[in-house]
Lab assay of single mutants.
Amino acid sequence: RPLSCPNHEGKTMEFYCEACETAMCGECRAGEHREHGTVLLRDV
């Protein structure tokens, strides 16, 4: 079952931030994590 983002209601966490070692949604990735290296969560 997909994980919901606690910061963006209705968004699914699909990415993993390698710098912060945390899962995130597309909005997180485009925002606070935009300078960080990210991979698809399913690839982690």
Rank of each mutant, 00 (worst) to 15 (best):
S4N: 13
M24V: 13
E35T: 12
R34W: 07
E35C: 06
L41S: 04
M24N: 03
N7M: 09
C20R: 01
V39E: 13
V39C: 13
L40Q: 15
R34F: 08
A19M: 11
T38L: 03
L41K: 09
A23G: 07
S4H: 11
E21V: 05
R1Q: 10
E9H: 01
V44L: 05
E21I: 01
H33R: 02
G26I: 10
H8R: 05
P6G: 10
G31M: 12
E14P: 06
E18F: 05
L41C: 14
C25W: 01
E32W: 04
T12P: 15
C28K: 04
E27V: 07
G26S: 12
G10T: 04
L41I: 08
F15P: 01
G31D: 08
G10C: 04
K11Q: 06
K11F: 11
T12I: 11
G26C: 05
L41G: 07
L41Q: 13
E21W: 00
C25V: 01
H36T: 06
G10Q: 05
A19V: 10
L40I: 08
E9D: 14
C28R: 04
H33F: 03
G10P: 06
L3A: 15
G37E: 07
R42E: 13
C20E: 02
C25G: 02
R42G: 11
G26D: 14
V44H: 12
Y16P: 00
L40W: 04
C17V: 00
T38Q: 15
K11M: 10
C25L: 01
T12G: 09
A23C: 10
G37V: 12
H33V: 02
C5N: 01
C20P: 01
R1M: 00
G10Y: 06
Y16L: 04
A19F: 04
F15T: 03
M24P: 04
H8T: 02
H8C: 09
E21L: 06
R1S: 06
E9C: 11
R1W: 00
G37H: 05
K11H: 03
E18N: 12
E14W: 02
R42S: 13
P2K: 15
R42I: 04
C28A: 03
A30V: 11
T12V: 03
C25Y: 04
C5M: 02
T38V: 07
E18D: 11
D43T: 07
R1C: 07
V44D: 13
H8W: 02
Y16T: 05
A19E: 09
A30E: 13
C5E: 00
K11Y: 10
E35S: 09
